[in-house]
Design a protein around this nucleic acid. Structure first.
Lengths: 200, 200
DNA sequence: GCGTTACCGTAACGTACGCTACGGTATGGG
DNA sequence: CCCATACCGTAGCGTACGTTACGGTAACGC
């Protein structure tokens, strides 16, 4: 048996390359040739690792989700109160640093791709709903006195703020600066601090 | 002098076609051939009306801004109080109906295109900052007691919520339903109702 | 060390893109 | 009524895409 390869490692390398190209050249610049060049191999190897371009995209999308999910797990675990956990998870999901802004550009790219690709759209919905559930669960921990519907509504508000900041900061990091994002997230969280019933 | 044409009308038609294709097939499906087919003409006519594809995109982008701007003007004018005006402007900028959701898909498409095209990026920033200024001005009318920095910060929060809802509803209109968007926007506005100093 | 075989680089295929050049066509002025 | 000309449809250019087929190559069992 000759020449065995580490398939998982190749997939990881190529996903990283996909990511890098997507962040740098945008969706139209994401070609198999560009990915191969970035990964230091040829298109032949790319298509021996993934069946076609869509499979590569799907894998890269999953990688993005895993990465943000793990960061969220870590932020959540490090916090010493539900309120701090919620704040930390939202904060790490926003895009203050350049690295996160790159992730935000990739996210926007996949969002746009999902508009025309049913498979990517399904993935996006699934991952985003999981994020919603995570936030909703944390809201429930912070305000167990609220009804479940209020938890869900608040989660939607918070996720909308965070993803809105991400999308806007991806194109205009100057206006949507780190400080602005912090203020916006904190403002969205103040609603949880008061004696509200969570319904408006 | 033979055969005069209505240039402005052609530009309008082609921008509408661009828009329609972008909403339906996404950014990768936006080709000159597709636009020409949708407009009922040929690529020759398209490139006699616009110098190149980018000029077409820029015109379509301007159209999107004008359209949303006019709707915002109307919403603002119809309201009988600053608070109602702010609410109406935010609400019309969100995407509850199918027509608005199409606009949201187009907006996401242009956002993604802006990531790779400096000209479209400049347009996006300019238009978004104008929207920010509009919202900031309305916030100032609602809470003249707040410092200007609080007006700007609040505007960023509100715009982030609205555009976040737009982006998310473009792919998952079921989760980010009309009702959910209404609740989220109202929740973001409650901050303006209380005796806050606007700083957190 | 050698044959076998999985692996992947090379090259090219077909397609579709943005764009251009040219010739037919319709329409205004005389 | 007809000529002149602005207009635009047709056809095709060059390029780059995704994908494929094949042959060379390197590594493991024996």
């Amino acid at each position: 048996m000759p020449r065995r390869r580490d398939l998982a490692d190749q997939q990881r390398r190529l996903s990283a390359a996909t990511w890098s190209v997507l962040a740098e050249r945008g969706l139209p610049g994401l070609t198999l040739r560009a990915v191969a060049e970035r990964a230091g191999c040829t298109t032949g190897m790319v298509l021996h690792t993934f069946a076609d371009k869509q499979a590569l995209l799907v894998h890269a999308r999953e990688l993005l989700h895993r990465r943000t999910g793990q960061r969220a797990d870590a932020a959540q675990a490090d916090a010493d109160s539900p309120r701090a956990a919620l704040r930390a998870v939202l904060w790490q999901a926003a895009s203050p640093t350049e690295e996160k802004r790159e992730e935000a550009r990739v996210w926007v790219g996949f969002l746009a791709a999902a508009l025309a690709d049913p498979v990517l759209a399904d993935l996006h919905r699934a991952y985003n709903r999981r994020f919603l559930d995570r936030i909703g669960g944390l809201v429930a921990e912070v305000r167990p006195d609220w009804p479940p519907a209020a938890h869900a509504d608040t989660a939607i508000s918070l996720v909308a703020v965070v993803e809105g900041l991400n999308a806007l900061a991806a194109v205009d990091p100057q206006t949507y600066s780190e400080e602005s994002q912090r203020v916006a997230i904190d403002a969205a969280l103040t609603r949880l601090s008061r004696g509200s019933d969570g319904q408006s």
